[in-house]
Design a protein around this nucleic acid. Structure first.
Lengths: 331, 331
DNA sequence: TTGTAGGCGTTATCAT
DNA sequence: ATGATAACGCCTACAA
């Protein structure tokens, strides 16, 4: 069970040099089929695994990447993160890599610095980027390979994102085409690139229709529940007929509030949200929303990072697709 | 910026041997204060960091631990996991360790096996244990240090857990003392140790009062929302006056359903839940629930694992405390 | 107190 | 096609 078998042991047992064994293992270099299979058979039988530290030392690689986990992720963000990491894991595992997590908040990224400076990783995946993102800036300066999930305002950063712009634009277009006139949008932190991108999509849809949106019906930086409550009051006052929510927690609150206030959805007001998440699973009415494939997003990010690490050229920006799921809330 | 400085460079620059430098860095071995501070000054100035792979090779340590992340964690579990990992991170970072995540589901733990067999980690933290848990069994056989967050049926496994038994017992006791007679309990997967432990606490509280619970009012394995709906119907039929929910998602559904059916909480039926989570933050009425310190749980688990790795003796079972937060739903 | 030399397990270089 | 040997960067008896 506990035999720590090394390349030397194999070499000795088989009467060959460790160079030969190494060749058989890596598949690189010329080696006869006979010896190769002999070595492989022995390896298989004795369940040999090359020591990653030794290999790392020799090849200057750790076979680990870091995935950055924002400490202040809220409940709504976690399922997204979970699915992303699932996708990342799937592809890096294939390449013999493992994932080190690095918890950071927007100001303090000591953890990230540690793993980078200590050379414990070969690359980094950022799972959220802010406007003027400090961790991103740091990584860029450090020269370590990294990619960002989500959009960045810095075009030099390699980014993989859901096509939030088109998604929000198309969603808004659909709602406008239903004949609604007063459309409100509620979103989170306007320092997040994602918030801005979605808002641009929202605005663009109005342009598409030769209209312009009402600035009074745009509510960004709406993170805390109490604030959202008052926004909803305001929306009702202003006779809004459609509200687009940038996350499902907001949408959930809107629905709940409407129910309490005896406002009918979708008859009095239509509601659309941005994720097709479990939070809204059992809502009545069912909520129209966008559906992104987060696992795929993670997988693509990971694949891209692997390419960067291996010195391949990659596209600077990749967008992942989406679906719009029309449900009762906008009927 | 990019100077890959090694212990040899320092030795040469300072005209000492690398042994001396090593001693200054590690703080071990006799060394004069003069040279030590000279070395340390140089290190500080040139921002030297020992290469962890080389150190790992020499000391047979990776300075990484694995935290196991169940792939099938649901939305309600993620905030718990997040807080746990936060706690783990805090203490392992202190010891120069990083966290590799290993995604497993109850049947397939290939990922975990990989990191263990490839010797990429020095220890493992399990964040959920099932009855007859396969990953736990595997780790035990592999001989690698590990601890489990949550309870296990195997007393040999080192476990760190919230005191779910006492918590559920005390909560039930309080509810019984309010004069309620027909108490129902709704819980998840009965293969999870946690579900059984809580149920034992529930049962014990009845014993404490010289009563016994009604088996017809015990609903375990209630994971999917549709099943829960019908359970709630049944509960109403059976004139239950109090319902204890083992997780907040269940509690949320109960409250919603009651509102829809015009059943008043707490007047017609009292509701208590198990976590003081954000899911229930904005519920009306506010929900009585237990409050566990998950971050501390993670921190204690990490501390314990560090001790095991360093060969210290540790307690086989540690329980973390809880609070009961009484709110409107059980008034 | 300080230094020398060998070892940790691989990969890479250069012979053979 | 195979092998000897030197890195890779750090730790640690053992010597001095």
């Amino acid at each position: 069970m506990e035999e720590k078998i090394t390349i030397d042991d194999i070499a000795e047992a088989l009467g060959v040099s460790k160079t030969t064994v190494s060749r058989a293992v890596s598949g690189k270099g010329r080696i006869s089929d006979g010896t190769r299979s002999r070595v492989l058979a022995y390896i298989d039988k004795h369940n040999y695994r090359p020591n990653p530290m030794a290999r790392g030392l020799a090849k200057r690689r750790t076979y680990n990447i870091a995935v950055v986990w924002p400490e202040d992720y809220e409940a709504v963000d976690l399922p997204f993160f979970h699915r992303c990491v699932l996708g990342v894991n799937r592809v890096v595992a294939e390449a013999g890599y493992d994932i080190i997590i690095s918890m950071v908040d927007s100001e303090n990224y000591t953890n990230l610095k540690r793993v980078v400076e200590n050379k414990k990783i070969d690359g980094v995946i950022l799972t959220r980027t802010l406007i003027d993102d400090k961790p991103a800036k740091y990584l860029k300066e450090s020269g370590i390979p990294f990619v960002a999930i989500g959009s960045s305002d810095d075009p030099e950063i390699i980014q993989i994102d859901n096509n939030n712009f088109e998604a929000c634009r198309e969603l808004t277009n659909i709602l406008i085409s239903k004949g609604t006139k007063r459309v409100a949008i509620i979103g989170g932190d306007s320092n997040h690139v994602i918030t801005r991108t979605r808002f641009r999509g929202f605005a663009e849809a109005f342009k598409d229709n030769g209209l312009s949106y009402d600035p009074e019906l745009v509510f960004l930086d709406s993170d805390d529940p109490i604030k959202i409550m008052s926004i909803i009051d305001e929306i009702i006052d202003k006779k809004v007929d459609t509200v687009i929510c940038m996350d499902d927690a907001i949408a959930g609150q809107v629905i709940t509030k409407c129910r309490n206030e005896m406002i009918r959805v979708p008859d009095d007001i239509k509601v659309a949200s941005f994720y097709n998440s479990t939070i809204l699973n059992n809502m009545t009415p069912s909520i129209t929303s966008l559906n992104f494939d987060d696992t795929n997003l993670g997988a693509v990010a990971a694949k891209t990072l692997m390419d960067v690490i291996n010195g391949k050229k990659v596209k600077n920006r990749t967008e992942s697709s989406y679906e719009i799921i029309l449900k009762d809330s906008t009927k």
